[in-house]
Design a protein around this nucleic acid. Sequence first.
DNA 1: CAGTATCCCAACGGATACTG
DNA 2: CAGTATCCGTTGGGATACTG
Lengths: 141, 141
Amino acid sequence: MPEAPEEDTMATTNAAQRREQARRDYDAFLAGCPTRELLSRLTDKWVALVIPALAGGPQRHGELAHRIAGVSQKMLTQTLRTLERDGLVTRTVTPSIPPRVDYELTPLGHELFPVMVSIKDWAETHMDRVFEARAQFDARP
Amino acid sequence: MPEAPEEDTMATTNAAQRREQARRDYDAFLAGCPTRELLSRLTDKWVALVIPALAGGPQRHGELAHRIAGVSQKMLTQTLRTLERDGLVTRTVTPSIPPRVDYELTPLGHELFPVMVSIKDWAETHMDRVFEARAQFDARP
DNA sequence: CAGTATCCCAACGGATACTG
DNA sequence: CAGTATCCGTTGGGATACTG
């Protein structure tokens, strides 16, 4: 099990090959696999809201905070920092007064986008059925 | 903004209508929306491993624990309970000695399945690119 | 406006021991 | 084997105040 990324010396590696390579190298079911840590970052309530919120181009910190109601400024900044470090989001500062900061999805972020949207959509679409299931569960002897 | 599920009196409601209904009723971007809480349950590291682990039929507690290396028995039981309550997993007890307990995806769980698999797969497939991004981020002035 | 730094409480989650 | 209960350290995350 790999503990560090392998250099990709094959410049012509395509998506399919990359995927095949990843399948061999990584398995989140294994405790020591680094994907386990990445998975725990991706499965984050705020990530599942921030990534979809960035649909339709660059957004300012304040805009995101407004869009994602109830998010504290601490959590928003923290989430955006992590996403930036992981290469999913870019942070662009325009040195004006007051300074303007825009966040935007990277190509990698755009690849994650549909996945995050699908979770958010799933929750919204199936909320009623989950409510029904809970009611049944709670009502049983 | 709804705080409780609406009764579905329309017996012939199809998937498309249901989805349209959900779009109007629920929005995880809103702070008080119950989908926010559901979203936080779904975006859970263990859920993203348990649901995919249940592919291919019923699994026993021990089998799941073995498959999902490193999960504590407490977290596994807790995760399975929540999934059961939310109608995503069934728990079947066979009263033998020792007792046998099997967990299996419900139809609702099967609908969540591809979403959870896509997150796990995304992490495994893009691990290398995330590593590269982190290296770049950490190496800058 | 964007971001950092504290303070502080609640929850998460592992280890261990005990029951049916 | 499956599950519950307790203990207890770690982390998450909100509120507030302050800087550029």
